[in-house]
Structures are given as structure tokens and as C-alpha cells.
Amino acid sequence: MTQALTLPLLDPDDPTYFPAPEQALRSPDGLLAFGGDLSPARLLSAYAQGIFPWFNADEPILWWSPDPRCVFDTHAFKLHRSLRRQLHRQGWSFTLDHAFDAVVEACAAPRPGQTGTWIIPAMASAYGRLHQLGHAHSVEAWHGDQLVGGVYGVAVGNLFCGESMFSRESGGSKLALIALARQLQAWDFPLIDAQVTNPHLLSLGARELSRDRFLDEVARLVVMPGQPGSWRRELPLPE
């Protein structure tokens, strides 16, 4: 017999309140609450507390704070020789905030073997609003005038919360991620939150932090000045 889950329902009139992340379920790992909305105020409040939304089209809005947490250290990315050769041979270029909607749309496309996506229209629209307000950002990898890879996420203070990435050519997502990390490191952003661990993220250099340690980092970073507003610029090639 399947046991019913008991979760807090978020107050629709209070976009800042979330239960403490330590109250999240162990199974499924990190499930914390449901309901509310995807307004900019609620999303920014969630990220500032180490919480993020993740749900399918046939589900209510679900909010998560898993333990452990998957993160990248912005200083730790290494461009291996094979990627460096590929980068210069193919003549790629990289930009920030030049094609946010296109990156989100590409990330939402079903992967091979998948029939759907969690980046449903309501999610894409919500992050589009955050982008217009200067809180959500994208990195684009270009081969000529073709978008071949990208990453998008949300900045709160000096913390970058990665949401998704895609590749249309080999190495596209990894090189976009490295280009992002180089710029974030220059701005004193030490971490990219990658949310839930999977083998692909670990293969790119991610590591795990306990939720307690991650929340300590969040509390320290989100009160820093960050880089408010649009990040639109061209980026140097990753080195």
C-alpha cells in the first residue's frame, strides 16, 4: 500500500514564506512544499533560501531542497586539450544574454529517449520575466550564426543557480558552462548551484555539498552585491 505524502501548501498571498529546507522529505529526496506560484518575488525568495521549483505538466508546483546538493566551483573548470583544439578549429564564439528565450527553448526540447520536459510553458514564461528584470541570464555558444549550446539560470547576490543546459554540437554545453564559470569567477561568484546530482554533472566536474554546508554558502552569498541588471556582452574564448 502506497503511503500518502504530507507536504506544506504555500500561502498564495505570501511569496516570501517557505518551510525550512531541513523539513524536506528524505524520499523523494528534498521535496519540501507545493503550491504557490512562479512570480518573480517567490522565485527569488526560493533561490535565496536554497530552494527551487521542479515539476511536470500534470503536477502542482513542487519545491525542492535536496541533500546533498550538487555544485560547481567556478575556479575549478579545466579546458582539456581536446576541447581547446575543437574550440579553435571550429571557430566558436560565446555571448551572455544575447538569446535567453532561444536557450530556454532549446533546453526545453525533449532529449533522446524522452517524450516530455519539465520546462513547460509556465516555467519558460516565469524565467523569461526574471530575465527581463535582470535576474535570469543565459550563456550562448555560437558556431557562426548558429546557436550550438547554452546554459541558463538565476543570479541572487553572488550565487548563480543553474537551471538547464543543452548542446546541438559536441561540447556545446560544456564550453558554454566553462565560459560562464570564467566570467562568474571574475565577478567573485564562487559557486554554480547545479541542484540534483547526476553522472553527467559529475563528469563535468561537479561535486556534492551537504545541504547544511550549501545553505551556509547561500546565506553568505545572496547578501553580496552581485551584478544587477542585464549581463549582455560578448565573452572571450574559454582558456
Rank of each mutant, 00 (worst) to 15 (best):
Gly153Asp: 05
Leu133Lys: 00
Trp92Thr: 13
Leu177Thr: 13
Val71Leu: 07
Ile119Cys: 02
His98Ile: 10
Arg42Asn: 03
His88Gly: 13
Ser45Phe: 01
Ser203Leu: 10
Ser173His: 11
Ser173Glu: 14
Thr197Ile: 14
Arg168Thr: 10
Ala33Thr: 07
Arg69His: 07
Leu180Thr: 06
Val218Tyr: 06
Gly91Val: 11
Gln90Ile: 15
Leu130Glu: 12
Pro112Ser: 07
Glu239Phe: 09
Gln49Thr: 09
Gly128Asp: 09
Gly171Cys: 07
Ser39Gly: 01
Asn56Gly: 14
Asp188Glu: 07
Val151Glu: 14
Arg111Tyr: 04
Phe94Tyr: 13
Thr74Glu: 10
Thr95Arg: 08
Phe52Met: 02
Trp54Lys: 03
Tyr127Glu: 12
Ala4Val: 11
Ser138Met: 03
Glu208Cys: 12
Asp101Gly: 07
Leu147Ser: 05
Trp64Glu: 01
Val154Asn: 04
Ala186Val: 12
Val196Asp: 05
Val223Gly: 09
Leu83Gly: 09
Leu204Glu: 00
His135Ala: 13
Ala24Gly: 07
Pro238Gly: 05
Arg81Val: 11
Pro60Glu: 10
Ala41His: 02
His137Ile: 08
Gly128Ser: 02
Leu31Arg: 00
Gly30Ala: 00
Glu105Pro: 02
Ser170Tyr: 15
Phe18Cys: 02
Ser230Thr: 10
Leu44Met: 06
His135Met: 08
Val151Asp: 14
Leu209His: 02
Ala155Glu: 14
Val139Gln: 02
Ser39Asp: 04
Asp145Trp: 15
Ala181Leu: 04
Trp118Cys: 05
Ala4Ser: 08
Ala124Ile: 06
Arg233Leu: 08
Tyr17Ala: 15
Trp54Glu: 04
Ile192Arg: 01
Ser138Lys: 04
Arg182Ile: 13
Glu234Phe: 15
Phe55Ile: 10
Asp73Thr: 13
Ala108Tyr: 08
Asp58Ala: 14
Glu140Lys: 14
Trp231Tyr: 06
Ala24His: 03
Leu175Lys: 02
Cys161Phe: 15
Leu202Trp: 15
Asp67Phe: 03
Leu177Asp: 13
Gly113Met: 10
Gln227Asp: 11
Gly91Ser: 07
Gly134Pro: 00
Glu208Ala: 08
Ala57Tyr: 10
Gly149Arg: 12
Met165Leu: 11
Leu79Asn: 07
Leu235Ile: 10
